[in-house]
Design a protein around this nucleic acid. Sequence first.
RNA 1: GUCCACGUAGCUCAGCCGGAUAGAGCAUCCGCCUUCUAAGCGGACGGUCAGGGGUUCGAAUCCCUUCGUGGACGCCA
Length: 547
Amino acid sequence: MNKIENLLKNKITEAVFSTFNIELEDDFVVIEIPKDSNNGDYSTNIAMKLTKSVKQKPSITANMLVEKLNETCEIAEKIEVAGVGFINFFIKSEVLAEIINTVIDAKDDYGKNNSGNNLKILVEYVSANPTGPLHCGHARGAAWGDVICRLLKKSGYDYLREYYINDAGNQIDMLGESIYGRYRQYYGLDFTIPADGYYGEDIIEITKEIIDDVGDNYLHSAKQEAVDFFKWEGRNRQLNRIKADLAYYGCHFDSWVSEKSIVDENRVEKALEKMISMNLTYQQDGAFWFKSTEYGDDKDRVLKKSDGFYTYLTPDIAYHQHKFERGYEKLVNLWGADHHGYVARMKAAMTALGHPKDALEVDLIQMVRLVEDGIEVKMSKRTGNAITIRELVDEVGLDAARYFFVCKAVDTHLDFDFTLAKSETNDNPVYYAQYAYARICSVLRQYPAEKLEHYSLLNCEKEIALLKHIGEFTSVVADAAKTRAPHKMCNYIQKLAQYFHSFYATNKICDENNIKLSKERLALVEAIRITLKNALDLIGVSSPERM
RNA sequence: GUCCACGUAGCUCAGCCGGAUAGAGCAUCCGCCUUCUAAGCGGACGGUCAGGGGUUCGAAUCCCUUCGUGGACGCCA
């Protein structure tokens, strides 16, 4: 909520109080920007919302309030009642223009806000098993998580980017076995790779890397010893590859937590003991069960199998419990949609352990379908395997890859249009925004902008639209952070670029015949530049000064 | 079969804590470079917001139901 909206809100609250003697709660008054500017710069539906309390037609209520507002609301040039009872405010353009200096003064910090209130929030994303390269599905999650964190940072949250490494389960054993197989194969010996092992090119590469380091040392040792060695060698090398791919993709994590460390620190036993002591479990058929149905799950879940091993769930509970123990009040997980059924039991576990109901929130990332020329592309033409994050970046470029993943809400399946993302021409939406930035920079290179004391001439429709949109930026950032909706930032960017292009096409920014107006416009353009740059930064897309 | 998500223009999607005539890009068609970057601008065409019911001043938005699509339903991870 910006300065103008706040002021309007206060004036409306006052007017309601003095007219009807009703004290409104803080969030009761809603200010919005009408789609059609004929309906004012800002509007409120307060008269409709008061229908029941005041027992009269909204239009009458609205007129009574406007009478009062006309006296008190000095920033408005005109206040009207329209439709069924909307109150529409037309703001003096010099008041709207004050935003220019706010932006210029704040520079990179424009958009920064404290809506997060320093909330300690841990965002866990990607968390792919260290058994193979990251593919396009991970790319969606990585971009989404990264942008969420950028938004949280800008909005004053105390956030942590975390990657959970599943390195204590069966899949890591399979990794060890797979490398062991390739190792023997390299030396021309008989070999087997388990049916649920890993057959990718990356395993062969990693095997060769290991051979470069240790040669045939493990050829004659006992199988289990060799597999154990390859398991951890493989895990570490895969993880390094993942880290490199993420860096290539512009994503960095603050924290890497391994499942093995959770196990080694006895956190799994402790978690189970805690659950037993809290009477959240029972024994049946030789196994320990979690009474998860009592906390909203479909059925009870096994924590410790009759063979004495834990299920996948138990270390995960321990891990999440540990997140809370580290002082995080809010946990956000971005999981692939295939983990869908897993959400309820995890939330059940956290609730059972005494954490607030919504302290853990899981956003599911739906599948990505790559489409080229209208046909689904399942495999890379080069390798025959799933397309990796690295191939994707090489193919379409970093900016396009990230933009395409971030610009759509994650709760629906995404068709990633390869053809469109690759096109370096007019069709590509990424360039639309970047081109606006390059155009702005070009203008400012030729005609440097300077801050003015006062702006009084920026009152054409397109200028007003830009001023209002720039003024919205901070609240859009705060809202996108709160609702974890990075695509809102893309929508904002597209609109800002659109307003600018439209303005640029119909108005000469620098006009020798009107120096005063030109100076004001240049300052406006500088404010647009800063806002656009900050917005692009938030989605991790570059702002080229020339194109 | 049970549970969950989704269903908006020819295509890809916004909009969804109820608000004014449901928006954008692509595609199709028509205009605009002697002018600060045409990777741009302006316009046209295009809709039973899956169907039905309900809640109310008002529903794409909330509730119920039917249909369709996808996913999850292991003492796997």
